[in-house]
Design a protein around this nucleic acid. Sequence first.
DNA 1: AGGCGTTATGTTTGCAGGAATACAACGCTA
DNA 2: TAGCGTTGTATTCCTGCAAACATAACGCCT
Lengths: 119, 119
Amino acid sequence: MKNLLHPDLAFRLNGRLWIEGPDDRFMGIGRLELLEKIQRLGSISKAAQEMGMSYKRAWELVSSMNQQAREPLVSTQTGGKRGGGAVVTAAGQQMLREFAALQARFQAFLAEETQRLAE
Amino acid sequence: MKNLLHPDLAFRLNGRLWIEGPDDRFMGIGRLELLEKIQRLGSISKAAQEMGMSYKRAWELVSSMNQQAREPLVSTQTGGKRGGGAVVTAAGQQMLREFAALQARFQAFLAEETQRLAE
DNA sequence: AGGCGTTATGTTTGCAGGAATACAACGCTA
DNA sequence: TAGCGTTGTATTCCTGCAAACATAACGCCT
């Protein structure tokens, strides 16, 4: 394969992985990162800010995940201490762990194939 | 994982794989299909038509691949018998084989992980 | 010589999807 | 009770990218 690529350019194998429902994406790398940030920051708005994404978009992603999951992955509260906030539920944490593990296996696959690519 | 998904909805694991250069994508599933159709039909325009894509877009993809490859993957001729045409070079055919094989291994990975998903 | 189907390339148009903006409701806190 | 930082939601504005359109050149073929 390497012998087919232009010698002056640096190439790299890349890919994406996601779980999709009938109408909508359910889980992907972006949603995973969003979950992580919500867990760390306790707020959808702060997580959105850190991802350089509008609050509305982040909220829509959370809503989509919650609707497609058996039980909500993120639980929210409007008003109250600090104005409210969001927490990742136990189900959300399990999702986070399992999808992160899947991602890791995918990265391993990519690394392995990248090796093969260089031959 | 299955226990986290909404029981009424059908989910499926999906993904994409591609090779990218510094500025532009080099090879992906769409470009692979385009190569296959060009080889079968002997023409960029016919291949574009069969893919439901504009000729211009197909031509740009071919141009991008040819520029990034060590040697052109598709060779074209303007004018002449049948108005001209395009053929996939030997390098193009090797690319086609190798990337198709990579795709197949990726599909196997997806299938395996889909199994694991259902647990 | 003229027609045809193709490659090759520039220009304009349309549109989907995200960003930006706006605003109501909520419930601690001071 | 007023303020603050959230969630929740509607609406308008942008813009990047693909589609659509247009046109030239090319070289067989009749």
